[in-house]
Design a protein around this nucleic acid. Structure first.
Length: 264
DNA sequence: CTGGGGACGGGGCCC
DNA sequence: GGGGCCCCGTCCCCA
């Protein structure tokens, strides 16, 4: 699915995504530059708490994921560096980065989503939005439908997508409201860890390093893709010519350009 | 044209 | 049931 679904690629510094058009204030999460280098260094957690490979499934290329492929330091730059955050309602959310994250100060404050019974909100015709308090269901873009049986279905009013659970819908709605805003460039994201990954583009932090070469990556997925380049047998194979590719997109390109059928 | 890196999205699993 | 975390996937750009 296109990444533009949530946030259309735009120069970060150019515009603030239409988050503000959906509601008018109080981003749930913000990051802001400049980051304190001392914090970046001091925040490197011990290896035992960094074990991003622990839960990786066993795939053909997983053997390449050596222990070095670990975050070498997630900068816990947040607590001191969110001067513009109106209310940092959930620090733990911010720590829930895309990759495995080092420990962070516990956050007793739950997000506004979880602080109120969804069902009671629903019953009252209200829905909670991060940083927004509660909005009338109609304004929030939430509609509740029932199928022909007894099971409830939750429809997003922004796109009419249907979900079977309120939780799934709430998460989906975040993709419309984009509550996580970068304090540096104003770009908005649906989830804290997306913002966290984005912040790395500002900080230059690259916690995921390749065990086979000196490269490091800010994104675990990109490391995974990179590891494919070290493998003779790559993950994606053309059924016609048996040629393998490191990425699905490359395989698609290969097939679209007309596979000759001859092995290469 | 191909390969690879960077950035980022949603779905789903697990706790 | 909700949130954290991870995987898979895609698009864009560049060499």
């Amino acid at each position: 699915m296109p990444r533009s679904f949530l946030v259309r690629k735009s120069a970060c510094s150019r515009r603030r995504p239409n988050y503000s058009e959906l509601h008018d204030s109080s981003p749930e999460f913000t990051f802001q530059q400049p980051y304190d280098q001392a914090h970046l260094l001091a925040a490197i957690p011990p290896p035992e708490v960094l074990n991003p490979t622990a839960s990786l499934p066993t795939l053909i290329w997983d053997s390449l994921l050596a222990p070095q492929a670990q975050p070498i330091g997630w900068a816990s730059l947040l607590p001191q560096e969110v001067p513009r955050a109106v209310e940092l309602t959930s620090l733990s959310d911010e720590d829930s980065g895309k990759g495995s994250q080092p420990p962070s100060p516990p956050s007793p404050a739950p997000s506004s989503f979880s602080s109120t019974s969804a069902s009671s909100l629903e019953a009252e015709g209200y829905v909670a939005f991060p940083g927004l308090g509660q909005l009338p269901t109609q304004l929030a873009g939430l509609s509740v439908a029932k199928d022909s049986q007894t099971r409830k279905a939750f429809n997003c009013k922004y796109c009419n997508k249907e979900y079977l659970s309120l939780g799934a819908l709430k998460m989906h709605i975040r993709s419309h409201t984009l509550p996580c805003v970068c304090g540096t460039c104003g770009k908005a994201f649906s989830r804290p860890w997306l913002l966290q990954g984005h912040v790395r583009t500002h900080t230059g932090e690259k916690p995921f390093s390749c065990s086979h070469c000196s490269r490091a990556f800010a994104d675990r997925s990109n490391l995974r893709a990179h590891l494919q380049t070290h493998s003779d047998v790559k993950k994606y194979q053309c059924k016609t010519c048996s040629r393998t590719f490191s990425r699905m997109s490359l395989l698609h390109k290969h097939q679209e350009s007309g596979c000759s059928g001859a092995p290469r």
